[in-house]
């Protein structure tokens, strides 16, 4: 239970319609569109709780334990309230004070032991190289340190980014890498890159720079993980609501990042193959 005091344990009910796994995991990402306030709150109805509720009902096997929709809403409201308080606290702090941010905002140290991405050895392979690439790109391009937080597992629909740039990889690595930026962070980053503050009408510049950033991340990642046999597409940049993360059943990792310009995250939904896959995209690789 990541957020203590939020989840009460006495409001379970039995229903044939609910599956414990579907109803048991509840997580949401709340990201301030202004400065870095990205944070995960994981609420989990653990196996122990499920078992306890099942014992309480006295029914075994046939009935599933679910979470009453009303109770779930109440708990979500309570969790949001806690998050809101945390955000209010943090809003008084300097954006560049990473250590302070880490201590006060990072409500969750990481996903639970049952986190599917913890079990995925393939996904784990990407975390360190991508972390190195993020730090390298920001160091070289902007001379700016980036703090990469503990990775989390993305849930469908969890998103509060205004700009999402993604690159599709094929061959020895298949999948998508994406950078998700709140507008405020994007404006500061691109302003630094261009050397002047961006005007309101420069959305195209934001999209372009976001695309360049994600291409550099993808290029760095594939050169570290797969020296040969991986091709990458050109970057696609869309509004956060239209994110185009491909999902063929593999876990999607989210690396929350913090820099002087604010918060952003890098998402990876990739798989590393021993041999390049047939049918890799043509026309975007070496061309030789």
């Amino acid at each position: 239970m990541a957020v203590s005091g939020v989840w009460e344990r006495d409001h379970f009910w039995t229903s044939r319609q609910f599956h414990p796994r579907r109803a048991g995991w509840l997580g949401f990402l709340l990201m301030d569109a202004g400065r870095w306030r990205g944070q995960w709150v994981w609420g989990a109805m653990s196996g122990t709780e499920s078992s306890r509720a099942r014992r309480r009902t006295g029914k075994a096997g046939g009935n599933r334990v679910g979470l009453c929709a009303l109770c779930a809403l109440q708990r979500m409201r309570a969790a949001l309230s806690i998050l809101h308080e945390a955000l209010a606290r943090v809003s008084t702090e300097a954006a560049s004070d990473c250590e302070s941010w880490r201590e006060t905002v990072w409500l969750v140290s990481g996903p639970s032991p049952d986190d599917p991405c913890r079990k995925s050895a393939v996904s784990q392979q990407f975390i360190q190289p991508v972390t190195e690439v993020i730090e390298h790109v920001f160091d070289v391009l902007l001379a700016m340190p980036v703090e990469v937080g503990a990775r989390t597992l993305a849930l469908a629909g969890d998103r509060d980014a205004d700009l999402v740039g993604s690159v599709v990889l094929s061959g020895a690595i298949t999948g998508v890498i994406a950078i998700c930026l709140p507008m405020s962070t994007a404006r500061r980053l691109v302003g630094l890159l261009k050397g002047h503050e961006l005007g309101e009408d420069e959305e195209e510049a934001l999209r372009d720079a976001t695309g360049e950033l994600v291409e550099m991340l993808a290029g760095g990642m594939k050169s570290r993980l797969s020296p040969t046999g991986t091709k990458m597409s050109c970057a696609e940049v869309v509004g956060g609501g239209d994110r185009i993360i491909q999902d063929d059943g593999q876990s999607r990792l989210v690396l929350p990042c913090m820099c002087e310009c604010g918060a952003f995250s890098v998402e990876i939904s990739c798989r590393l193959h021993a041999e390049p896959r047939a049918g890799a995209m043509s026309g975007s690789g070496s061309g030789a």
Partner: peptide, 14 residues
Amino acid sequence: SECERQRVLDAVQA
């Protein structure tokens, strides 16, 4: 942004 050895060789050969 792609810097694999083969990529560089292809560019130079071209």
